Simulated scan of single mutants.
Amino acid sequence: MSFEFEKELRVTETNIPGLLVFDLPVHGDNRGWFKENWQRAKMTALGLPDFGPVQNNISFNATKGVTRGIHAEPWDKYISIAAGSIFGAWVDLRPGESFGQVFTTRLDPSRAIYVPRGVGNSFQALEDGTVYTYLVNAHWSLEQKRTYTFVNLADPELDIRWPIPLEESERSEADLHHPMLRDAKPMAPKRTLVTGCNGQLGRAIRQYAEAHGLEGFEYTDIDEFDFSDPNAYDKYDWSLYGTIINAAEYSTELCDDTDNADKAWRVNAQGPALLARVAAEHHIVLVHVSSDAAYGMNKESKTIAPVSLYGQTKAAGDIAVANAPEHYVLRFDAETLQDSEQCAKEVFRLLDEHTAYGIRDFS
């Protein structure tokens, strides 16, 4: 094995959006070598998304010429080499302008690559005993596996120049039969969960999504998913979700009855707090619809100082939502909140502007 020692840690962007190549410092002497394979603080400072890995996988490739792929999986991954070297090929299988873009390079222990969700991954071992390791930010499950998408290693449209001809390589039976790019299914976006779907705003969001043919939306209400109950969250595999739209609300009129105070706090405060927790844990974008009643008499200064029970519970929910790293709070005045169709349009305008891959904007 031969590779360059003592490189400077640096990142290089590629023609595929979000696909990043890292040069890694490897320190060697007569005993062998050592490297910091993944270093969160240094790498995020260079532009690596703080993707929150939860699982480490290792692929051992016994002989030169073993070739695997092309698989697009529903998680982000950080790939590095522990022994040997590979020729890697990546194909963008996300819907959009970059669909079908190809990037190739060689990796050894001094180079690594970050692959965003939906980018197809493949590699060819260039040495016997190549060890390929990768971090992912979702646990493998059968439900996740059903969302994989594939493209054929030998597709002439991709024009991948494999160092070892594919007819001389070692491939699995499954990899021989993946579709060509023209027939490949783009990676579906992560799911969107809409809470409060039986309220005025929830119904308007559903109507908008269905009218515009938007896929991947799921709808629930407190009778089905009591989002104020911590134990209710176990029914979902949250790694499948990319966005939560919280349209649930205990309204002003109901809050005027003090007998309903406990319900108001559950729906307007406790529920959003628990949604914020799960959003933070699973890197989910949380869009929370609120009211300017949270400001009380301080609407111009934008200082949270509610005076009514309704405003107090909404303010508590807003503050809790701020704990989700990727969040938006949409506060409407009382008149606009009555126009649920307009509020729904504002929700989708926000999604159109900000929920692309790698979102890091805050409200």
Rank of each mutant, 00 (worst) to 15 (best):
173 E>G: 08
67 T>M: 08
209 A>E: 14
71 H>V: 12
331 R>M: 08
211 A>K: 14
29 D>Y: 07
21 V>L: 14
36 E>D: 15
262 D>Q: 11
330 L>I: 05
256 D>T: 05
251 S>F: 12
26 V>W: 04
338 Q>C: 02
355 T>M: 08
274 L>I: 00
309 L>V: 02
358 G>L: 06
63 T>V: 13
87 F>K: 02
325 P>G: 03
305 A>F: 01
88 G>M: 00
289 V>A: 02
313 T>P: 01
333 D>R: 08
59 S>Y: 09
198 N>H: 13
183 D>T: 01
130 T>E: 05
351 L>V: 07
106 R>G: 04
214 L>M: 15
226 D>N: 15
56 N>L: 15
318 D>S: 01
361 D>Y: 07
175 D>S: 09
306 P>Q: 01
230 P>W: 05
2 S>F: 12
248 A>E: 06
223 D>M: 10
2 S>N: 14
187 M>D: 13
321 V>D: 03
247 A>H: 01
207 Q>I: 06
79 I>F: 14
332 F>A: 10
34 F>L: 14
236 Y>N: 07
249 E>A: 15
170 E>M: 09
66 V>F: 08
67 T>F: 05
260 N>H: 15
341 E>H: 05
246 N>F: 00
149 T>I: 04
66 V>Q: 10
114 Y>Q: 01
72 A>R: 04
70 I>P: 04
88 G>C: 03
104 T>P: 07
128 D>H: 11
211 A>P: 01
81 I>P: 15
226 D>E: 14
228 S>C: 02
286 L>C: 02
145 K>A: 15
210 E>V: 11
145 K>F: 13
96 G>H: 10
102 V>T: 07
235 K>W: 09
196 G>D: 04
64 K>W: 09
120 G>L: 01
109 P>K: 02
267 V>P: 02
18 G>N: 03
65 G>C: 11
31 R>Q: 12
